[in-house]
């Protein structure tokens, strides 16, 4: 097992990130440990769920997209070129499958609305989409301020920060890349989206966020 580890991230005692653990899990799986992916599935499913949901996929379909992403990982386990980038691979795969699901759903709805009985006399109700998740469940004032402030960011920034919050901080860079928002210069680990959010939060008043 030692030989294969050489290709894995070199950690300096600061602990492994989710991206690192994903790489190790895939490598061990390739080496024949069929149980190696269990912990990764537990840990990264929330990230995949929110990635898929951010593409506008409703709940039922999102569950299937997440499942099929994990199945795809197993099926491609031997051919993923860079185990180190497996977290990004998972996010990109989930995102593409989500787009495909949205496209098919739209095509289906279009086909249905084109049925002859869909006339003004017999309007056909399309199934209601899941209501957008809202902030009603957030009881804490700072949580609500944070959520409202997040909504003021561009959509892709919102998506990025929701995902980054669920991963380990050093995975920020991988997640940004998966979302198609590279972080730019090496020196800026915070990234524009988070800086922007902090600015908006500061405008909301004198809350301590620490």
């Amino acid at each position: 097992m030692t030989g294969s580890r050489e290709a894995l991230p070199d950690v300096d005692g600061s602990g492994l990130t989710l991206g690192d653990r994903a790489a190790i899990a895939l490598t061990e799986y390739r080496e024949g440990n069929r149980q190696a992916l269990g912990e990764l599935v537990r840990e990264a499913t929330p990230l995949l769920w929110h990635t898929v949901r951010a593409q506008g996929v409703d709940q039922d379909a999102a569950e299937d997209v997440v499942q099929s992403t994990w199945v795809a990982l197993v099926r491609h386990a031997e051919t993923i070129a860079e185990p180190k980038a497996v977290l990004k691979w998972l996010l990109v795969t989930a995102k593409r499958a989500a787009w495909e699901s949205v496209r098919k759903h739209r095509d289906d709805e279009k086909r249905r609305t084109e049925l002859p009985d869909d006339s003004p006399e017999h309007p056909m109700a399309l199934p209601a989409k899941d209501p957008l998740p809202d902030a009603e469940v957030l009881r804490d004032e700072r949580d609500r301020i944070l959520w409202m402030s997040l909504q003021k960011l561009p959509g892709r920034c919102q998506e990025l920060l929701r995902l980054v919050s669920l991963a380990d901080r050093p995975d920020y860079r991988h997640i940004s890349a998966a979302i198609g928002m590279p972080m730019g210069s090496i020196g800026s680990t915070r990234g524009r989206c988070l800086a922007k959010l902090r600015t908006i939060l500061d405008e909301q008043g004198d809350f301590s966020w620490i």
């Binding site: 929701r162 669920l166 939060l201």
Partner: peptide, 8 residues
């Protein structure tokens, strides 16, 4: 902020 966001 990110920790709080994750909970939200």
């Amino acid at each position: 902020v990110l920790t709080r966001l994750a909970r939200a």
